[in-house]
Design a protein around this nucleic acid. Structure first.
Length: 178
DNA sequence: ACGATGATGAAC
DNA sequence: TTCATCATCGTA
């Protein structure tokens, strides 16, 4: 007899909203990675929003390229890219198709730093453009964790000083310990 | 404070 | 084809 689970896989309607709202709402959700039949789940504790062609910190600011193409696609898909010759960055696409926006998963569980997240869960560019679902082996679940608004801290995004005024927008969200 | 390390995109 | 840049991390 299966036990009713509080776990719910997040689908397109969750992601098909304004990117800043999605970034905030992803705190307390679980990133789940299937490896050899096992599901490894870790709670999302830090995110950043990248919002469209006008946001100078967003990769889509300079238009569509082969790399950032997934950002222009439908919400609920991964955008994964390689930086600094070493690290894979995991983003999930948000908003309506054609509008390039995505949330960077910066921290999960005890792993602070987007490069550590992908390394720990064996995530690489092969996921870019794939759907965030069971088929891709990487998805996000709501496991019933209730996040108090008071435990969410908003701060400027990391590593985007080149973006001028856009670098000062508080589009980074951190889940503080309750 | 800095070097590792290589894909990306824009310029030529 | 070259070149500067880069949504980072570990070590000093």
């Amino acid at each position: 007899m299966p036990v009713a689970t509080a776990s719910r896989v997040l689908t397109r309607p969750f992601f098909d909203r304004a990117v800043v709202a999605v970034a905030r709402d992803l705190l307390g959700k679980f990133l789940v990675r299937r490896i050899r039949g096992r599901a490894v789940a870790v709670m999302i504790t830090e995110t950043e929003a990248y919002d469209g062609p006008r946001d100078r910190a967003c990769h889509a600011h300079r238009g569509r390229t082969p790399r950032n193409a997934p950002m222009f696609g439908p919400a609920g898909h991964w955008y994964v890219y390689f930086v600094y010759g070493m690290h894979w960055m995991l983003n999930v696409v948000t908003g309506e198709s054609g509008y390039p926006a995505a949330v960077l998963i910066r921290g999960v569980g005890d792993w602070d730093g987007p490069g550590k997240v992908t390394k720990a869960l064996a995530i690489d560019g092969g996921f870019s453009g794939k759907a965030a679902d069971g088929e891709s082996g990487l998805w996000i679940e709501d496991r019933g964790v209730v996040v108090d608004r008071k435990n969410i801290r908003a701060a400027p995004r990391i590593g985007v000083d080149y973006a001028g005024a856009w670098a000062r927008k508080k589009w980074r969200f951190v889940l503080d310990e309750g």
